[in-house]
Design a protein around this nucleic acid. Sequence first.
DNA 1: TAACGACCTAGCCAAATGGCTAGGTAACGG
DNA 2: CCGTTACCTAGCCATTTGGCTAGGTCGTTA
Lengths: 227, 227
Amino acid sequence: MDREPRSDVPLGRRMPNASTRIVIADRNVITRVGLRSILERNPGFAVIAEATSYDAVIDAVDEHGPDVLIIDLDLGDDTTRGLKVVEEVTDRYPTTKVLVLANTLSEMIVVEALRRGANGYLCKDDVKADELGKGIKAIQDGETVLGKGVGNLVAHSLGSTRQTEHLTDREIDVIKQVAKGLSTKQIAVAMFISESTIKFHLQNASRKLGAHRRAEIVHRAAAAGLL
Amino acid sequence: MDREPRSDVPLGRRMPNASTRIVIADRNVITRVGLRSILERNPGFAVIAEATSYDAVIDAVDEHGPDVLIIDLDLGDDTTRGLKVVEEVTDRYPTTKVLVLANTLSEMIVVEALRRGANGYLCKDDVKADELGKGIKAIQDGETVLGKGVGNLVAHSLGSTRQTEHLTDREIDVIKQVAKGLSTKQIAVAMFISESTIKFHLQNASRKLGAHRRAEIVHRAAAAGLL
DNA sequence: TAACGACCTAGCCAAATGGCTAGGTAACGG
DNA sequence: CCGTTACCTAGCCATTTGGCTAGGTCGTTA
């Protein structure tokens, strides 16, 4: 025991020349190439796979068991699906660290991602080239990396006891109609349900999003990538 | 001749070592690096400068007089400013082609950009790696390049005689408050003007955006990158 | 089986909104 | 000087909305 006073990073844990093996998940080819270029300036990083769909992310992680997964939650038309992917990866591969790389900043998404095991959350527009490498190293050392502005959001949500509930499919459907400028009545006709139901779904969505007006519901849902 | 069986790029048409000189304008470092990497796979393209602010774009174009400017209109918190940059560049440097590379698709922005002289409009998420090079070449040949889905938007707006009016600063201020979920009364207090004025601005914004409800105003303005 | 979540419906009332007309000022450029 | 634009204010009224209570079905899961 005494022979290894500091055994939290045992010798041999990292082989000589061993690189951090990274999988990138982003639907945007420009971003994928950019990330790869930036990361591979550092010989300690190796991007071993790219994915552009939720299924492909799972496949890639299954196949390669990477050290780090860098993922944009918005891989389709449903960011919620991205959250599920984070949960699945962190559940099944505890040694794979997950860094979320988002386009927008939404309290709901950030909190949910972290709650489901993400080890970091950076915003694409705010990140500097050198922060990426540093962030990944920090994450591998067990830290949680939060980008500019992300920390504040998290702190804010810690203050409120309200735990994030996410919107149901139906609620999102209704919100989409609202975003198109339809009235309750018009939505009812379009969706073949009663006006009461429309109002019901919107009331629930309001509560979940902490909004009090339709315009705010739409804005928040859009910011969360739900529309 | 046998030594150069593939002479589809005739000798002499382009000077030896002559490259298409490109300036990239995007606030996002990942995108800038990605674009550069993709473009420079083709030796005919040379990225000679990058810019991350509206002023820097003008400076870069002034200094380098590039063949092509690839620009994301959203370089700050005001996409309208990006439109002005497009106009200024195409006005002052008719030989510089402008390719807009957007995150989102908004009819208003697309139409305005083209009206002000942009030679192409692509959507980042839809673009494939090889389309970039092809698009730039096409633009240099005098074509107008519209990405997936962009063409439809343009066609749609040609049908309507309504010419795009853009929102005033004040209107955008009010819309931002609406997006935060404030009522007319609350906004009036916050902005030190009467409720009537709030409603006045929103009526005008509705007309300009073709919206009939606050939720739609917010949605459209957000989609246009105005918030 | 019971509990749960997602979904659906009804009705009430105060408040907010949409759509309209009809004015005003100040600044700018032709 | 005139026209234009951005900006500001008032009032009217029908419609929409927010916020609430109080029910229901269906399928899944414990």
